[in-house]
Amino acid sequence: MTQFTLMDILRNLVFATQWTVILSLVSFIGGGLLGLLLLFMRIGKTRWLPPVVKLYTEVFQGTPLLMQLFLAFFGLGLFGIDVPPWLAAGIALILWTAAFLVEIWRGCVEAIPKGQWEASASLGMTYVEQMRHIILPQALKVAIPPTVGFSVQVVKGTALTSIIGFTELSKAGTVLTNATFQPFTVYGLVALIYFALCFPLSQVARILERKMNVAHRH
């Protein structure tokens, strides 16, 4: 029987962490792109698109991420494809991330004073030009701190994909616990690795927010 030293445990956990990082990046970038598309639908001038997007965000924010993962996993299976866990995990996390980002970003666009719209309209700009030159550049600045802050939620959200069988940091923790019978050490280390991933992001978000509040006070 092989014995696991602390170094063995740590090496395996760090190896599994790369999948947590990759899945986080895929979810965040994919969710960001989808969120951007949904944002334009949400704040656009059409009559029926905004309520549809609103319903989308309410459903995804009002149900557990775990359920969304299960539904993606078994729902895709209904089409007769054999669904690998990474696919279900990626799709569910992208949809979930987009639902939160679109609401965060909508708040940022709506925080732009009405006068900015009126001033740009009075310069004869079209809706697209107003968005491109006036509204979005300003909204982007406001949006960065909460967006970085939300990335922490995405990293933590990837932990749930272990439940549908995706092998990332949490799953590796469970496997190593079963192999070593040292749950205290293993889950302690897993928690510390998540902390090492998330804490810098939280701090960056906090610093950016503080900077912006100072800028706004002037």
Binding site: V152, K156, G157, A159, L160, S162, I163, S170, G173, T174, T177, Q182, P183, F184, V186, Y187, G188, V190, A191, Y194, F195, C198, F199, S202
Partner: peptide
């Protein structure tokens, strides 16, 4: 900070599986 920067699932596992040890 420790709780806000780690997943709930791991907190749960630590309490249920880790603390008995």
């Amino acid at each position: 900070e420790l709780i806000r920067n780690t997943p709930f699932l791991i907190q749960l596992f630590f309490i249920f599986f880790g603390l008995p040890a």
